[in-house]
Structures are given as C-alpha cells and as structure tokens.
Design a protein around this nucleic acid. Structure first.
Lengths: 272, 272
DNA sequence: CCAAAAGTGTTCTCAGTACACCCATGT
DNA sequence: ACATGGGTGTACTGAGAACACTTTTGG
C-alpha cells in the first residue's frame, strides 16, 4: 500500500447524478446536453469533478443544487455505485461515483456552463425500444427510441432506475417524491409512476401504508385539500423518520426494472 | 466538466476488501495487521491501489487472489460502496472503492508485503462490546472488545456485514459460502452463522430453499455423504444460477446487522 | 438400543387480496 | 344528479410457523 506516483498515476474522480422526479404522472430523469469535447451534443447525466476538500456526498449535493438552482436540495440523495473502467472517458482515467436522488416536482432545470441545455426526460421515452410509438405528445421532440447517452451513462441510468424501484419497496422514500404534505392518493401515484403499473386496489395500499410504523404521520387539523381536485377532500400526511418499511410494499408482477443483472455481478462465481 | 489539474488535483484510488467466510460455525472476516506508516500495527481490511489499466472489479479480484494465495478466487465478489471523505487517509486524498466477497472455507491467508500478518477474525469478536465474555476459546488471543481498525474500516466493515446479511435474504449467494457440493444442513448453518441466530425449524427452511426456483439443484446419484458425520446421509446439492431468491428467506427478529443507518443517509431529507 | 441428523406431513394463523359499499366534494 | 376521488368493512386464500412423526446412519 505504498504510494508511488510513477507506478500508480492519479485518477480524476467525479460524481454523476441520476435525479428523478415525477412529472405528469411519469417517472422522469434530468439529463443535460453536453456542450464539450467528448460526446459533444449527446445527452448525459449531470455531474462534475469532486473538489479537493470535498466529501463525495457533498460533491453530489453541490451538483444537485447547481442543476436545480435551489440553495438546498429538497429530497433524498444516496450513493449508487462507482464506475471506473479504463477508457470510459477517452480523455483520462476517471472514476465516477454515481448517485441517485429523488425529488418532488422541481422548477425547470438550469443548464450549467458545460451544457447546452438541461431538461427532464421520462424514463419510458429513454430506453424502451418497443414502446407504444405514436403517442400524441404536446412538445415536438426528436422521436428517439433507445437514446444513446454519453459515456457509460445508459448503464448507470439502468441501475439507477432499478435502485429507485427497489427503494420504494423497502423504504419510506416514496415520500421524497411528494411535497411536504400529501394525500395517500398522491403517494399511490408515486408508486404507480415509478413502477409503471397501476396498483390494483386503493384500499389495500392505504392499509399497507398506514400499518407500516413510521411511514407517514397524519397532519392534524381539518382534513382539507390544497390540491384543488375533484372528489372528497383527503387527509393530509407528512413523511416520517423510519429507515425501513416493515412490512415492505412489494411491486406487483410486471413492474418496472426487475432487471436480472442488478448491480453488476461477475460472470458466474464457480468454486472449487 | 473541464479538467484543470490545478483546480482539481488528482486522487489516489484504492480498493478495500471485506472477505467473509465461515470458520467453526462463525462468520469471519479477513484482516491484516499493518506494517507501514499510517496506523502501523493496527488491523485493517486488505486492499491496495488500482492500477492504471485495471478495472475496479479486476483490482478487487487481484487483491483477493493475492491475499488468499489462490490463482482464481472461488466465491462471490461485488462492489459495496465508495469512501472518499477528505482526511480519511492522512497521507493524501484517497477514494476507496470497498468490495464484499464471500468464500467457502479457505487456506490460511497470506500476509502481503505491507502486512505483518493476516488472519481471520470472527465478526462477533470484533465490534460487539457486550458479548458473552469468557467463552473458553482454543487460541489465546488478545481479549478485545470493539477492536479499532485502521482508517474508516470499522464503518466499512459494519456496512459490509449488513450487506452480507441482507444478500442472504434476497439472493442465492449463501451457496458461495459452501463447497461445490453441500447438504441442506450445511446451507442452514451458513444462514445461522451469518445471521447469528438459529433458524427455529429445519423443515420449513428446507421447504423454502427447495421451493425457490434456481436456488439449489440436487446432485443425482446415490445420496451419500462426504462429510463423515453422524446421522442419516444427506442429499447433496449444488448452487444454481438464479440471480434472485423468490420468495426471499427473511431473517428472523434478533438477527445480526439490521442496523438502521444502512448505506449512509443524509441527515434528514426535509423538503419545501 | 440410543443419539444424531435427514426428511415428510399436518394443522393453525395471519397477512395479502379481491370486492362491496359508503362518504364528501365539484360541476 | 352524477362523476370523482377518499375511506371502511369483510370474506377468501395461500404462505409461513409450529410441531409431530418417520428414516437412516454411527456407536
């Protein structure tokens, strides 16, 4: 473990961010269009170099603030995994520590100095080649199917989507997609958007959420509705402080991202 | 994302390894006693620098081979998470990509060039201060309670133990702790060693294992016993190729490492 | 014959599901 | 009045837990 800079030339260390939110009932991720040399013009996950005196988590948090334009990021941020295959960045040896973040609906993103623009993409629009094609969409965007992202970001994003879907099963982090106060109906919409399937039975969903200790806490006072929608006014809830969801809320068959490879396994661990 | 070496001085990148096995029915981890400057004399996770043209996984795999003395590591290896807090290594800025490995019983470890010696520690002996104290143990070792490891390795190891315990619930990786052919009794011992609790009912464990598709595959031929023990000879099984365990085999209450913080969460994600 | 470990069968209970139904609001 | 979403009650079903029992070896 001796450090010889000649034998072991240094690495650049970056953080990459898969920032998810839910817009119009669709799980969406923030991408930037690169304005610089490698993969110029391609879409990529936002990210940047870790500063000399900065923790990894702080670097991700800073990038998050820069991209969203908010002083303090209102959501959940966690490390995903690191990617350091030689050649993944043609310029130099880079190890990227990928992070995943969940946020409630945010203002339009801010394009950084290294990006032409930044926008939300629905996950469905990105890498599902056989998707219902001609859905009348308001904006006129390039009709892509299986958009190729810069670097190894397609792979990172696939793992990130899987992580988000899994987190909703075993943690109360679905509330991180909601505003401070929310109804159980809104919470159910979060699950449906992330998993990409409807949840079959409202009543049972409600009971599972309320049974799990520390998942949500009702807001006392008149159960009134801020979201001016139809129907009976709903009780409002706040997220609580539990770390796990017990019992978990399992995704139904057919839900998104039950991909087999998961967080990258070696070929096939055989043994003597 | 411009690279300016003056603004962003380089990092050293290492891999650290939490290699687990089961010895005498105890979950054990391989540690080395450091023989060099920072934390000289302290116990630490094995690890080393990533080479210039080496993938992260390959670096971990190489370290694994060096420590065990085996040309090809017979077990499971996966990335855990990265640690890069400034100051975690007093010499320089280091980002360490921690890995977790499971192996069947291995030969005595090999002390590397930077280590005085290497040996297996039972996880119970390491960081459980209130443990049954004077258990007559064969070897006469320093009676430690809460051994302080070098760097931030105590934290890494805690997360690693949690990962191992969780993996046994949702994946068939318990077989990675077993030799190529094993009995269901031996497989149950793996679960009990890792979780630190007995499994209450053999019959139900057996049924869970056999019901999960792709967990184990019986070895055809006479059900004979290689392990010369007491009792009726057992059917031998081999591990199979499933990625997940469905349905999972959940750890009973009281099992090891149901630590709340998990893979490091930010303070308390509040939102606007 | 007894101990020890493997293997099978059966009952009970509780969580998850499906489905029916009522409630309170906007239009 | 009716559409829309919120909320409650209840019967059914299947998986897991508990436990009793048989089988096959070594001593």
């Amino acid at each position: 473990m001796t450090y010889d800079p000649h034998a072991y030339p240094p690495f650049a260390v970056t953080v990459d961010l898969a920032l998810f939110t839910i817009r119009d009932g669709q799980l969406s991720v923030l991408l930037i269009e690169r304005d610089e040399d490698p993969f110029e013009g391609a879409w990529a996950l936002p990210g940047g170099f870790v500063r000399p005196e900065e923790d990894l988590h702080d670097a991700a948090s800073r990038e998050l603030a820069e991209e969203t334009g908010l002083a303090r990021f209102p959501g959940h941020l966690e490390q995903l995994r690191s990617y350091g295959t030689p050649g993944r960045d043609p310029r130099m040896r880079v190890v990227s520590v990928a992070h995943v973040a969940f946020a409630p609906n945010l203002p339009e993103p801010v394009a950084g100095t290294d990006a032409r623009r930044a926008r939300w993409w629905t996950v469905d629009d990105l890498h599902l080649p056989h998707l219902e094609v001609a859905r009348a969409q308001g904006r006129r965007e390039r009709r892509v199917q299986g958009l190729q992202l810069a670097f190894d970001h397609t792979r990172i994003l696939a793992v990130a989507v899987d992580r988000v879907a899994a987190k909703l099963e075993y943690t109360p982090l679905a509330t991180a997609f909601c505003p401070a106060e929310f109804t159980l109906g809104e919470l159910q919409h979060v699950y449906e958007a992330v998993w990409g399937v409807p949840l079959a039975d409202r009543a049972n969903f409600r009971r599972k959420v309320l049974r799990a200790p520390g998942f949500v806490r009702p807001v006392d006072g008149d159960p009134h509705r801020l979201t001016g929608g139809l129907g009976r006014p709903a009780q409002l809830y706040r997220g609580s402080d539990a770390a796990e969801l017990n019992p978990p809320i399992k995704r139904p068959p057919g839900a998104r991202a039950v991909r087999q490879d998961g967080p990258m396994r070696p070929k096939a661990a055989t043994r003597a």
